[in-house]
Simulated scan of single mutants.
Amino acid sequence: MTSAIKEYGALRRTVYAARYLADETYRRRIARQLNKGENLHALRRSLAYAGEGALRRRHHEQQTEQMWCLTLATNGIVCWSAEYHGLGVAALRRADRQFDDEILAHIWPTHHENVHFYGTHSVDIDGELAQLDTDGYRPLRLTKVVSAGS
């Protein structure tokens, strides 16, 4: 039985390798998924290195707590970005902006060029709450779109 399972596993790996080598679209899809994973790791590294990448706690429980904080911050950034990307896409569609859904496959909520990792952040909670719309979101920034013909 064990040898049959090993042979089945070898067969599956062979079929995967053949499909991967023969299908360029499949290779691109795999590469895109790998890139998404790498982008998530880059976000986590950026968050960790903002604290100089060091575990600052002495005890295991405290180190675990620090890593959970990193996970919480990562998830917060990803959720915020995903939500506001969705709001932006919905606003563009309401404005009759047409774009291919294939383009959306390249927008990842783990992109973090807009995140400021260093320094002290102070938040005016009352001021921020006053900016929220009736659905509880901050207003989207409107940018002037220049068409290719103008």
Rank of each mutant, 00 (worst) to 15 (best):
R93S: 03
T64E: 14
W108G: 05
A10K: 10
I107P: 00
T14A: 07
I103C: 12
G88M: 15
Q131M: 10
P109C: 04
V145T: 14
V115R: 00
N114Y: 10
R28L: 15
H121D: 09
R13S: 04
G119N: 06
H111M: 06
A48V: 00
Y84A: 09
A48P: 01
V15K: 04
E83V: 13
L55P: 02
H41K: 06
A31N: 05
T64H: 03
T2P: 01
E128P: 01
E65A: 11
Y8M: 05
T110K: 01
P109M: 03
L34Q: 13
L142Q: 01
H85W: 12
E83P: 02
H112I: 12
I103F: 09
A54L: 09
V115C: 05
E38T: 07
E113P: 02
W68H: 15
R13E: 09
R29Q: 13
L92W: 00
E65N: 08
S3R: 10
L11Y: 02
L43A: 05
R19L: 05
D96E: 12
H60A: 08
Y20E: 04
K144H: 15
L72I: 14
E61T: 08
E65C: 00
G9Q: 15
H112N: 09
R57L: 05
N75F: 10
V115E: 03
E52K: 14
L87H: 08
L72G: 08
A48W: 02
G37K: 00
H106Q: 10
E102P: 03
Q131S: 05
L55I: 13
E102L: 14
A48S: 06
A148C: 04
G136S: 11
S147D: 14
R44Q: 14
D126W: 03
R29F: 10
S46K: 06
L34E: 11
I77L: 13
I103W: 07
R44I: 10
Y8P: 01
G149K: 13
G149Y: 09
A130R: 12
E7M: 07
A42C: 00
C69N: 07
R28G: 09
L11A: 10
R27F: 04
L70D: 07
D96A: 07
L104E: 07
Y84G: 10
R97F: 14
R93A: 13
A148Y: 12
C79Y: 12
L129Y: 06
T25S: 07
I30Y: 11
